[in-house]
Design a protein around this nucleic acid. Structure first.
Lengths: 149, 149
DNA sequence: CGAATACGTAACAGAATCTGTTACAAATAT
DNA sequence: ATATTTGTAACAGATTCTGTTACGTATTCG
């Protein structure tokens, strides 16, 4: 699993915490421990998914496009992995040419994993960005004065 | 996800089908559509996990170390990914130095995903190699005369 | 005993992917 | 106008994955 999901969740939790105030990619990158361009690149996905809205220019930045309670981690996951090869796909190598055992094997494995994947998706769908933000705020260590800094 | 899980399942289903007859890495590789060394490399994991037993020399090959009904896909998955970075770990980048939001974020995400991962593991544990082999045999297309060839 | 077979393992190349970084155009506030 | 900030392309370095070659070791068979 790449870092995209973690970084995207970090970003959105931060935006949920800053309640409407636009946040720049530089601030977000500093908090998430990455590079501003990485944030902006990922932000493109979140924007395409309708999760955030950005504004250019001085004083610009990004805000949530809808309430944090209405953004599930499944939304985040899907947006973060958009355009990427399906993380849950069963990668097999060459399907056998003699018979299509390869294809049958792939279908069988996908069937086996189907329920588990559905459960995982449901679990992600049950958690909102607001919940994550609140849990982060609650567990924020004392020696870090300003939240999400 | 790498191809290891799919190839390992393929191998074990094949071995389950050949009931005690040792199968060479060359035959397995041909069926799985990969290279014999890839099979032998992966077989090292399966052997370490106690799922198969190999014998060198002429007429050698690999057999299941215990009945196929007693090998779950969770066993296969664990063995195939042994020594690899945890597929389900939430990769984050640098934990922030100012405060440990990075660590808290990681723990929070791991907590969120914990149930989903447990469900997925349970689902894999509920399916045996024998079941996979039987489903493959049942779904084997007609124009492929000899099973698993 | 010697040859053929087959595993075990190291080593390496090519491809793909991921992240970080630089660069620069476009948009916007002051 | 100027400073700020996003949007995006392009590229380098690191890592990973698969396929492949090579070679030592074990085992069977004649």
């Amino acid at each position: 699993m790449n870092t995209r999901f973690a970084v995207a969740t970090h970003i959105l939790a931060y935006l949920a915490h800053s309640k409407g105030q636009p946040v720049s990619s530089e601030v977000l990158a500093s908090s998430a421990g990455t590079h501003p361009v990485v944030v902006r690149r990922l932000m493109g996905n979140l924007r395409d998914a309708g999760l955030v809205q950005s504004q250019r220019g001085a004083g610009g930045g990004t805000v949530l496009a809808r309430p944090a309670a209405e953004i599930s981690l499944l939304d985040v996951f899907r947006a973060a992995q958009e355009g990427e090869p399906d993380l849950f796909s069963v990668n097999s190598t060459n399907p056998n040419e003699n018979c299509d055992l390869g294809r049958v094997m792939q279908e069988t494995l996908e069937g086996v994993l189907g329920n588990a994947i559905a459960a995982m998706r449901a679990s992600l769908a049950a958690v909102s960005v607001e919940q994550v933000m609140q849990e982060l705020a609650a567990r924020r260590p004392n020696h870090c004065p300003k939240a999400f800094e």
